[in-house]
Design a protein around this nucleic acid. Structure first.
Lengths: 109, 109
DNA sequence: TTTATACATCACTATACAGTAATATAGTAG
DNA sequence: CTACTATATTACTGTATAGTGATGTATAAA
């Protein structure tokens, strides 16, 4: 199995996926899904965002393969498509902590 | 050492950092830096982007702690601030490969 | 059938930002 | 000093998209 080369075309696809994670609303939705699948209405209630807004964000995340969905009667249950999304968030959060540590050290020193 | 909680405020900071990686031009610049530090002009030549454009992208990456810089005479040498950026790109690339594999399977099946 | 619920989609507005040309700043050379 | 080079910054334009209200669609219940 060959690794993809970082050609400009591949970088564009990668950028598109990072962009999906560059919205606080979508990140918040993903964090809600950390503990299991949710209906759209549940996500609306938990996040406080509008229904149309949440629905659009979910479509976006679904199209890029970040979440799965399952229809059951009137409801659509969304869930995480894998753990790598959370891993990305955690890695970025680690960067953030490191950044803050540096900042604090500069204030102290 | 405590882990940061994913509050809306923290998610906003994380989103801001993902957004920095959501631009093909910035990703391409980061990939150029994979093999070592570069001056702005070198990056302009390697990427083909305009000088002002590259300079702005580098400021952006610097402000968020993704790259370091070192001034020497007329030149400013930029380099990666750590390996986690590349790790993020690689993880996202892995996701992309998996996505493509699923797509191919659907076409075949 | 009608009514209600859950979700998706459309049309619109406002905002953010990538790219660019021009200019500013700062260091070097003559 | 002047002239040149490397980088940063400013002002502007075009484009993408988040959010919203209204509407559409599908399922369930009465």
């Amino acid at each position: 199995m060959r690794k993809l080369a970082f050609t400009p075309e591949v970088l564009e696809l990668i950028a598109e996926r990072f962009k999906a994670l560059s919205e606080p609303a979508r990140l918040q939705i993903l964090q809600c899904l950390r503990s299991g699948e949710r209906t759209v209405t549940e996500l609306v209630d938990e996040t406080g965002f509008g229904q149309a807004n949440v629905s659009k964000h979910l479509q976006h995340l679904f199209n890029l393969g970040f979440v799965r969905r399952r229809k059951e009667g009137l409801f659509t249950y969304y869930s995480l498509a894998g753990k790598s999304v959370l891993q990305l968030c955690d890695t970025m959060c680690g960067r953030l902590e490191a950044e803050m540590k540096v900042r604090n050290r500069m204030l102290a020193g």
